[in-house]
Each structure stands twice: as C-alpha cells, then as structure tokens.
C-alpha cells in the first residue's frame, strides 16, 4: 500500500534520513520504533509531503507521491496525527473535527463520521463546544486522532500517540488504535514506547540515526535480544 524506496531527507545540511526503505501493506499495523532523534517524525513528515525528500521514491497504492503537496496526499488517503498533536487550541473541539474533514464534500458522510468519532471518544462529545486548548493532554490526543479520522484515511500515520500520557490513558489509546485497524484502516505507528507498539503491530522497523537497522514481524523483534536490551529494557 505504501512503499518508500531509498529515501533521503535533509534539513539544510543535516542528513536526517539516510536511505530509508519500508513498506506497509493493506490492513496492517506497522510500527517504526527508534530513540530520540532517530528520524521517525522526519519520515512521517516526508510521507505527508511537509518535507520533500532529496532523493528516493514514495509510492502510495502504486501511485508515486514523492514531492506531492500535502493536500493531494491527504486526498489520496494518507492522514497524519503528528507528534505534539498540533490541534487548534482556540477552535472548538467540533471545529477541530471539521478541519479534519476539510477536503471532503459529502455532508452526510461527514455527519456519520462525526457520530463515529464521538462513539470512539465519548468525552469529545461532552466537550464539543469547548476550545481544543482547554482539553487535558490525553483528551487532546484523542481529539488529534478523531480529527485525522474525519478525513477517512486509508492509511493513518500516528506519531508517538503515547507521548507524555498517563499509563491508563496510553492503554486506552492503544486499544483505540487496534479498533481503528479492525475497522479497515491501515496504520503506520511511530513510537518510542516499543513495548506497547510491538504488541499491537504486525510488523516493525527499527530506525537508528536515519537508517533502518532491523525489521521483521513484531513477535520476532520482541524476541530479539538486541531489541530487548536496547528498546524493551530487558537484559
């Protein structure tokens, strides 16, 4: 469904992604794990067209999207829930959701997805008239996910959805991620919380300073001693 071939991304002179190739198949949850500064967010921003790769190719459903504008990428079916959530703090919860559906014209479908988002996150329904910035961290993360779902993505990119949240909220978020996936949405999940990510994902990639150093089915990665010591805190 999504394929990156030897992608290199730079910030000025900083070579952040150094020849990354990965693939995500329809229906999967694929996780990209790695420590601080490994290049996880840069990878997602490159896929979303916020940053252009210097070389390499990106394909989505066999169509090349390398260097395409973000609105086209969203229209094709890739939506991102960015790191730090990036919700609109002075728009209401409801307006935030509407912005997620910005490129859609089907009013009925939007209405339905609104209901669906409120079912997934009932707290958002209670807060629908409140400004996004007044929500708690966990609620903001829910809003960010709900907002992205309003675009009805085929592929959802999630950047560290567990960042800075209490363990119980993290559980809840990961449950929702599984649920979204069972609904038919393919997911590329970026995480530092490798434990949780590998548990929910089918397949994983390990990123280190801009390069994939390991990949495979989640179960294999979890049993790999190197991963266990470096990412799972097991000696």
């Amino acid at each position: 469904m999504l394929r990156l071939e030897d992608v290199h991304t730079y910030y000025g002179n900083i070579h952040a992604i150094k020849g990354l190739s990965l693939r995500v198949d329809q229906g999967e949850i694929v996780t990209l794990i790695g420590s601080n500064g490994a290049g996880k967010s840069t990878t997602l921003m490159t896929i979303s067209g916020i940053i252009r790769p210097r070389t390499g190719k990106i394909f989505f459903q066999e169509e090349e999207i390398t260097g395409a504008l973000t609105d086209r990428i969203v229209k094709l079916g890739i939506t991102q829930v960015p790191e730090g959530r990036m919700i609109f703090p002075r728009l209401t919860v409801y307006e935030n959701l509407l912005m997620g559906a910005y490129l859609r014209k089907d009013r009925k479908g939007i209405k339905m997805d609104e209901e669906h988002a409120f079912e997934l996150f009932p707290i958002l329904k209670e807060r629908r008239k409140q400004a996004g910035g007044t929500l708690s961290g966990g609620e903001q993360q829910m809003l960010a996910i709900a907002r992205a779902l309003m675009a009805r993505p085929r592929l959802l990119l999630l950047d560290e959805p567990s960042l800075g949240l209490a363990p119980i909220v993290v559980e809840n978020i990961f449950e929702v991620i599984s649920q979204i996936n069972s609904g038919g949405t393919t997911i590329l999940l970026v995480e530092q919380n490798a434990q949780m990510a590998l548990q929910v994902a089918h397949k994983g990639y390990v990123l280190e300073t801009g390069r994939i150093i390991m990949q495979g089915p989640s179960r294999e990665l979890m049993e790999n001693p190197k991963i266990q010591s470096a990412y799972l805190g097991i000696d």
Partner: peptide
C-alpha cells in the same frame, strides 16, 4: 465558513493545518 475556520486553524498551527489537507 469553512475557509474562515481554516484561516483560524492556520493561524493557530500552520503544520497542523497543512496536515489536514488545507492548502
């Protein structure tokens, strides 16, 4: 309006707005 809301969204978080497909 939609475009007005997009204006406000953009002024609050440009990358966030772009990621929603706002041109």
């Amino acid at each position: 309006t939609r475009v007005g809301t997009a204006m406000r969204a953009l002024s609050q978080n440009r990358t966030g707005a772009a990621l929603m497909g706002i041109n």
